[in-house]
């Protein structure tokens, strides 16, 4: 009998540090002795690069393109400390349908019982957070992932992407889909950035799993084609990722979030924009936002 497999999806706006964070979580989990598969669901196919010395791997959809019959095992590669890496792949920009690509790739692995066969502890889907069509929502549907986390900075566009994702989760939650685990607050280096995220999670009935500061260590590690866990294992940043991974491993209860409506979100961000201007101008308005 196989052990209990924990299925997690991590979403985030493009460029927000989602793959960096996901790969560091995967690296920290394998370091802690778990068996982990990271599944990149972004047509750019670079989710798992830092787990494999910066190298691209052939994707599931590359196989589909050339073979009449796909053996999903051929799309599975091992990286740092034995972590399993899979990239869904997808069409070139501007052609085909990337969303259908994700549906096809996820289904191929499911049908071939790959996760059970590898006897995994964790499957982590790293998904492009602009959930632009049904395909990108596949990982949050019934039977794929159980817990969804978003990576978000305090940047408004990034918060909007998280809010949108929560809308998707709320929609699918009736039909047995995944629930929301929390926000991984990325690039948080100042108290007001933390306040913005804190305020947002409070308004949406969710939580912050971890605050991850922006760090040059991460950039250096990435440029060497590695995760921070691998390249700078003794750094403070690596410990932050380890801590995050521990929290995710221990996480059991996810919830249906209460995303803000468009108008509410606009008002909320306008309020914060005022506040930020005031901070820039050196004004103090502590009573409005509690700083």
């Amino acid at each position: 009998m196989s052990k209990q497999l924990k299925k997690i999806a991590i979403y985030g706006k493009g460029g927000i540090g989602k793959s960096t964070t996901t790969s560091n979580i995967s690296a920290a989990l394998v370091e802690a002795g778990y068996k982990v598969l990271q599944f990149g669901c972004d047509p750019k196919s670079d989710s798992t690069n830092t787990l494999r010395d910066g190298k691209y791997i052939p994707t599931v959809l590359d196989l589909l393109r050339v073979k009449p019959k796909v053996d999903a095992h051929e799309a599975i590669f091992q990286g740092f400390n034995g972590v399993y890496c899979v990239e869904a792949g997808g069409p070139a920009p501007g052609v085909g349908c990337a969303g259908r690509g994700i549906i096809t790739a996820v289904e191929l692995l499911k049908q071939q019982n790959i996760f059970e066969e590898l006897d995994l502890d964790f499957v982590i889907y790293d998904v492009l957070g602009d959930v632009v069509c049904g395909g990108f929502a596949v990982p949050i549907r019934e039977g794929i992932a159980e817990h969804v986390f978003t990576v978000s900075s305090s940047d408004f566009m990034s918060v909007y992407a998280s809010n949108n994702l929560m809308k998707g989760i709320k929609k699918y939650s009736n039909a047995g889909g995944a629930l929301f685990g929390g926000i991984i607050a990325n690039s948080i280096n100042s108290p007001y950035q933390q306040s913005i995220i804190d305020d947002f999670v409070q308004r949406t009935g969710t939580q912050v799993v971890e605050y991850v500061p922006r760090s040059i260590t991460v950039t250096q590690a990435e440029l060497s084609g590695r995760t921070t866990i691998e390249a700078a294992p003794k750094s403070a940043q690596a410990d932050i990722y380890r801590n995050l991974a521990r929290k995710i491993a221990a996480h059991t209860e996810s919830r249906v979030p209460t995303p803000l409506e468009t108008e509410e979100l606009r008002e909320w961000s306008a309020k914060w924009a005022d506040q930020l201007l005031a901070i820039e101008a050196g004004e103090l308005r502590g009573e409005r936002v509690g700083i």
Partner: peptide
């Protein structure tokens, strides 16, 4: 519906 990824599984199980 397969291309747009309509959630037929979710609706039917519901």
């Amino acid at each position: 519906t397969a291309i747009i990824g309509d959630d037929i599984d979710g609706v039917t199980s519901d």
